[in-house]
Amino acid sequence: MIPLGHYVLLSAFLFCVGLFGVLTQRNAIRFLISIEIMLNGANINLVAFNRYFGASDATGQVFALFVIGVAAAASVVGLVLVIAVYRLRKSVFIDDFNLLKW
């Protein structure tokens, strides 16, 4: 039998891998990929908690469904912004976006 803790551990690992990616990536698209990993970690948490806390309500699964939808919408807008910046600056590297610096 698989204890709940293992699911939470998996979710925490994904969260930390995503966080590592967010803190270290220079490429805006890879930053987005790391965010998706973090969101999937959160989804695993939600579905696992829902399953292990008794079968009377579907809160976790419903929330996970909505998170997938929201992640899709956010990715659409984010990638469109990346492309818009790329059109003007020909670069997707965050370090190059220094027009608004001190």
Binding site: P3, L4, G5, R51
Partner: peptide, 8 residues
């Protein structure tokens, strides 16, 4: 207590 919880 998450570590001890088993599948219902």
């Amino acid at each position: 207590q998450w570590n001890d919880m088993m599948l219902p």
